Structure formats: structure tokens, C-alpha cells
Amino acid sequence: MAEKPTVLFVCVHNAGRSQMAAGFMKELSGGRVEVLSGGSEPGDQINPVAVAVMAEEGIDITGNVPQLLTTGQVRESDVVITMGCGDVCPIFPGKRYEDWELTDPAGKSIDEVRPIRDDIRARIEALLSELLPAETEEMLS
């Protein structure tokens, strides 16, 4: 893996789950992980409830814009995390792929999205402990 691992988060609209995951990864890695995100059918804006629950964690994703997933993003990533994009995600041999089964926050209330956010945070912390084992111990202690 490269000195600075690259992680790509993918969901259909790139408006909720993948944006929350990218926000946590950027924040919790302290810039030691390159973070990309994209969607197979990007929405026109970030889910405002996702923005609100991330703000509760002190993470601002208001400036993020849903992006179309590109094969270039997949090619340059060490780890590709998909969240319900099915067969539309391009697959390249030699990449580490994980599919995180997470409820889509679209149309959900803030109380319904908080547990999704917390699940994403826990998964990001676990992934970080694998990508940056020694550094993660220091961060979390």
C-alpha cells in the first residue's frame, strides 16, 4: 500500500452514507489517509440530515458536492468501500473491497440517521486501526 493510503467511499447518490464516511475518515485520520467519494447516480445536493448529524460530531460536510464515481478514482484507491451501489461499481483486480450494509438515510428523520452515523464512525475507526495501526493507537489513547 502507498505511504498514504487512499480510501474511496461509494454509494448511489453520494449524498449521505459515503459523504458521512468521507467526513469521518478525513477528520479521524488527521490527513494521513487520502479520501475520495463518488456515486453511480449522484444527487444534486448533500442530504441535509446527514449534514446535521455530522455537525453534531463537529464535522462540517456542508461544502461537499455529490460527485460521479469515476474508474480513475477506483484505480487510484487502495481500499474501496461500497454502500449499496450494487453491480454499478467498477471492480479492479488487486484492490481491497468492502461492502458496508448501511441503511440509506434518504428521507429519514434526524433520530433515524444518528444510528447510521454512529455505525459509520465505528466502521471508520476499525478501518483506520487496520490502515494506520500504530498511529491509531496513539490517536485513540
Rank of each mutant, 00 (worst) to 15 (best):
T6W: 05
R32M: 10
A21T: 00
D87W: 12
G23I: 00
G94L: 07
S18P: 11
G30R: 02
M54G: 03
D119M: 08
E125P: 06
W100H: 02
V10M: 08
Q73P: 10
E101R: 13
K108Y: 07
D118R: 05
L36E: 04
D87G: 13
T70K: 11
L132G: 00
V12M: 10
G23T: 00
Q45E: 15
E76Q: 15
L127D: 00
G31S: 09
D87F: 13
R17P: 07
M54C: 06
G38A: 09
Q45G: 15
G107C: 13
E125G: 03
L8I: 05
W100R: 06
N64Q: 15
P42W: 06
V65S: 14
D118S: 05
I61Q: 01
A134F: 13
C11A: 12
E125R: 04
A134S: 14
P48S: 11
R123M: 03
V12P: 08
Y97D: 09
E3T: 11
N47P: 11
I81Y: 03
M20Q: 01
T62N: 14
G58D: 03
P42T: 02
N47E: 09
R114N: 04
Q67D: 10
I59T: 00
I120S: 01
C11V: 08
E98D: 12
T71I: 15
A21D: 00
I46W: 07
G23C: 04
M83F: 05
G23P: 02
E57C: 08
D118A: 04
V35P: 01
A55L: 14
A52Y: 02
F92C: 12
E101Q: 13
P115Q: 06
P5M: 08
V10C: 06
D60R: 08
G84A: 11
E101V: 10
L128G: 00
M25D: 00
R121T: 01
L69R: 06
P133I: 05
P42L: 09
S77K: 05
P115H: 05
L69A: 07
P93L: 14
A50R: 03
M20K: 01
K95W: 12
V88A: 15
A2K: 13
E98G: 09
A2E: 12
L128I: 02
G72T: 11
L69I: 06
R96G: 07
